[in-house]
Simulated assay, not measured.
Amino acid sequence: MHITGKHINYYHICHRKLWLFHNGISFQHTHANVADGSLLHLTAYPQRAARYREIQIDGIKIDLYDPHERVIHEIKRSDKLEHASIAQLQYYLFVLERHGVAGPTGILEYPKIRQTQTVVLTDADRAAIPQWEAGIEQVVTAPECPPVINKPLCRQCSYYEFCYVGE
């Protein structure tokens, strides 16, 4: 199984969302926040396309990578789920290291609030990531979808109507 950045991100947000995504159930194409994020990604830094590279490796896709500085730029529309965004970027760094890139770093960028955060991979992160991978494998191969987590963040999720259709 190839674990993607979305797998890592969703694992840190909601196991139900992870299970649904992995099993081909998606409502992202109809959700306004997803469309807004996609548009932001395309328009926030248009000059970067000439300078940075898109790379695909081990099932992940990194949109903005500076191979000379070994820096991944990850653009997010909001810092509300920052822990999951950091985990996703740490996973990208982990995969690059696994393929021989020495000392990669990452920058989380939030253009709407004009903030950035540098992300590095620590030894503790390197030890935790295989546990994330095992946890993801366990969630996505479960025969049944995990239960609704019923948190305030659910209201902004593209799966909201799916999860709460009976209420």
Rank of each mutant, 00 (worst) to 15 (best):
Thr43Lys: 09
Glu54Thr: 15
Pro46Leu: 04
Glu54Phe: 01
Glu54Arg: 15
Arg48Cys: 06
Asp66Gly: 02
Ala44Leu: 06
Arg48Tyr: 13
Asp58Tyr: 03
Asp66His: 02
Ile57Thr: 05
Lys61Tyr: 03
Ser38Ile: 11
Arg48Ile: 08
His41Ile: 05
Ala44Arg: 06
Glu54Gln: 15
Leu39Asn: 14
Leu42His: 13
Asp58Arg: 07
Leu64Asp: 06
His41Asn: 15
Thr43Trp: 00
Leu42Arg: 13
Glu54Trp: 02
Gly59Asp: 07
Gly59Asn: 10
Asp63His: 08
Ile57Gln: 00
Asp63Val: 03
Gly59Pro: 09
Arg48His: 12
Leu42Tyr: 10
Arg51Thr: 12
Leu39Glu: 14
Lys61Gln: 04
Ala49Tyr: 13
Leu64Asn: 07
Arg48Val: 07
Ala50Met: 11
Thr43Leu: 04
Glu54Ala: 11
Leu39His: 12
Ala44Asp: 04
Ile55Phe: 01
Ala50Tyr: 10
Gly37Cys: 03
Gly59Tyr: 08
Leu42Lys: 15
Asp58Val: 03
Ile62Trp: 00
Gln56Ile: 11
Ala44Trp: 07
Tyr45Lys: 10
Gly37Asp: 04
Tyr45Glu: 09
Arg51Lys: 14
Gly59Phe: 01
Gln47Cys: 06
Gln47Ser: 11
Ala44Lys: 02
Tyr52Phe: 12
Arg48Met: 11
Ser38Arg: 11
Gln56Asn: 12
Thr43Tyr: 03
Gly59Gln: 11
Arg53Ile: 00
Ile60Gln: 01
Arg53Gly: 01
His41Ala: 13
Glu54His: 10
Ile57Cys: 01
Asp63Arg: 08
Ile62Glu: 03
Ala50His: 06
Pro46Gly: 05
Ala44Glu: 06
Glu54Cys: 10
Leu42Gly: 12
Asp58Gly: 02
Arg51Cys: 09
Thr43Val: 06
Gln56Phe: 09
Arg53Thr: 05
Leu64Glu: 02
Leu64Lys: 05
Arg51Ser: 11
Gly59Trp: 08
Thr43Ile: 08
Asp58Phe: 00
His41Lys: 13
Ile55Pro: 00
Ala50Glu: 10
Leu64Gly: 00
Gln47Pro: 05
His41Cys: 11
Ile57Leu: 13
Ile62Arg: 04
Ile60Leu: 06
Ala50Gln: 10
Gln56Lys: 15
Asp66Trp: 00
Asp66Ile: 02
Asp58Met: 07
Leu39Pro: 07
Leu39Arg: 15
Ile62Gly: 01
Ala50Phe: 12
Ile60Met: 00
Ala49Thr: 09
Asp63Leu: 04
Arg53Leu: 07
Glu54Tyr: 05
Gln56Glu: 15
Arg51His: 12
His41Pro: 04
Arg53Gln: 15
Leu64Tyr: 06
Ala50Asp: 11
Asp58His: 08
Leu39Gln: 14
His41Glu: 15
Leu42Met: 12
Ala49Glu: 11
Tyr45Gln: 07
Pro46Thr: 06
Glu54Ile: 01
Asp58Pro: 00
Ala50Val: 04
Arg48Pro: 06
Lys61Asp: 05
Tyr52Met: 12
Asp63Thr: 05
Leu64Met: 09
Ala49Met: 11
